[in-house]
Amino acid sequence: MNVKLLSGALGAEISGIDLTDTSDQNFKKINDLLLEHKVIFFRDQPITNEQQIALAAKFGPLETHAYVKGLKDHPEIVRIIKGKEEKNQWGENWHSDVSYNSKPTKAVILKSVKIPPVGGDTCFSNMELAWETLDPKIQSKIINKKAVHSSLGAEFFIDNYKYMEGNEKRNYDSYSNEHPIVRTHPETGKKILYVNWTYTKQIIGLEKEESDQVLKEIFEHQARLDLTCRFSWTEDTVAIWDNRSVIHYAIADFFPGRGLGYERIMDRIAIEGDHPQ
């Protein structure tokens, strides 16, 4: 096994591990790497849908997305498609997946199906490190508080994406949940700064103006480059990230007018998490 670090903050590219081996021994290696590096990547892994599902199931119960339809034969898999003519890309702002759920996603396994020759990298930011490096004045203000996370409604997830299809809950309005701003990782015991630019809307117990200001400062801090890594995809790459410990940003640097109109296809499986504590 070889481990190549992607940055000083988080992320590693792993070789020498067979992702089709779902034995307890092999899963422990993968999970230990995930807890250490927060997001891990495996290139040249032409796994099938069934093999991706089998790997994900080792982490826990699988989710189906509240708003987006999965594959016909594999509803657990959301196929993320950006067409050649499209400029938008699903997930193109800083976020933690479905943090608006009462039990937000534990981990995500994303497999690249079709990758453009340029564009479409993904950035990740380490929220354990973000908490450790946050201004102590802000730390003291938020340590025992909760924040509201809102899903923004079904349209947010598919209206800007021509090839993304809503599921039977297409007409559901947005819904919200409150989570601790600083949560504790259930496996490592580490403190995590658990808010994100896309879904976190207000700090409970603060007036709206003060809440907006504090969240603005936190969001800017979370996006600091020294807390991040950036990954350039190739086809048949599998990424696994700890959705509790990171936020991520799919870069939509596709400009058809500049000759950069490329199709990009990814298969996503999410594992159900717990109630943040």
Rank of each mutant, 00 (worst) to 15 (best):
F157H: 13
E207T: 11
G205I: 01
S7I: 00
D97R: 08
N101S: 14
K137N: 14
S140Q: 12
I269L: 05
A130F: 06
M164D: 06
L55S: 10
K72H: 12
A223W: 03
T48H: 14
E132A: 15
P256N: 10
E178T: 04
T48E: 12
I203G: 00
T105P: 11
Q222S: 02
K29M: 11
K58H: 11
R258G: 06
D21Y: 06
P61M: 08
I109M: 03
M127P: 03
R170D: 06
G91M: 12
K69Y: 03
T234K: 14
D32W: 09
A147H: 03
F124K: 07
T122N: 07
D21M: 08
K216D: 10
I109H: 02
N49Y: 08
D135R: 08
S96V: 12
A107F: 10
S174W: 03
G257L: 00
E76M: 00
E235K: 04
D253R: 04
G83R: 09
T22E: 04
Y194I: 05
V246M: 00
I247E: 02
W131L: 09
W94R: 05
S232T: 07
E76G: 00
Q213E: 14
T234V: 15
D226F: 00
K69T: 07
L227E: 01
D97N: 15
L62N: 05
Y172N: 15
G189M: 03
L19N: 11
S102L: 15
G8C: 08
E263P: 03
H179M: 08
V238S: 01
L134T: 10
D274I: 04
V39K: 04
S150D: 13
Y172P: 10
W131M: 08
I53L: 12
G189V: 15
H248L: 07
A239R: 01
D226H: 08
G119M: 03
